[in-house]
């Protein structure tokens, strides 16, 4: 999208113009819905995240200083919206699993290249909420275990084990979907 056009839309949103808000929504809804889908447990929950996220965006858009990339700022808001929703539901209390390594062979890399985005989203949605959150924050958003532990109010070890467990479940599901073998270490 042209930078000036986006700036114009953002300025309109800062003034509370409904037309600009609608344009901004249509510009980023598809991308942010994907974000919501991999944080949510199902489509309905993702729609709820999307709606709450955009309301939060419109309410707080004046805080956007136009220094960084707007999409990254948006993504962060949606991520925090999801985290807040999970905190409200108190889904963070999970047992500490022992870390289990898993290995992927070359077949599984092929699987990842073949699997559609929708299927991948479905697989991630099937993870238990706490695993899904840790996996998303670590593997997609790039946070460290210490940062994740602080954000979610967990022990660093719990974050690590949740990630490990998430990977294990994903591996099993991928294997199940494409009937390939897995090795556990």
């Amino acid at each position: 999208m042209e930078e000036n056009y986006l700036k114009e839309i953002i300025d309109g949103c800062k003034k509370g113009k409904r037309k600009s808000q609608e344009l901004l929504y249509h510009q980023f809804a598809a991308k942010m819905f994907a974000v919501c889908l991999y944080y949510a447990g199902n489509k309905t929950e993702a729609e709820d995240f999307l709606q709450s996220g955009f309301i939060k965006v419109f309410e707080n858009i004046k805080q956007y200083q136009e220094k960084g990339i707007f999409e990254a700022w948006l993504r962060k808001i949606f991520m925090h919206t999801a985290l807040t929703k999970y905190r409200e539901k108190k889904l963070m209390l999970l047992p500490d699993y022992k870390e289990t390594e898993y290995l992927l062979d070359s077949n599984q890399e092929d699987v990842l290249s073949k699997i559609s985005t929708n299927d991948l989203l479905c697989l991630i949605q099937q993870l238990p909420p706490a695993y899904r959150l840790v996996f998303n924050l670590y593997a997609i958003e790039g946070y460290s275990h210490r940062e994740i532990a602080e954000m979610l109010g967990l022990q660093e070890g719990t974050s690590k084990s949740n990630l490990s467990r998430a990977r294990q479940i994903l591996q099993q599901k991928l294997a199940g979907q494409f009937e390939i073998s897995t090795k556990k270490g």
Binding site: Q21, A29, T117, L120, L121
Partner: peptide, 22 residues
Amino acid sequence: QISKKLLQAEVIPPASVWLGIE
């Protein structure tokens, strides 16, 4: 690989979401 795939993902939401936001 997963991250790359998901960061580029786009899924069109149903029209009811915008109506709800409005």
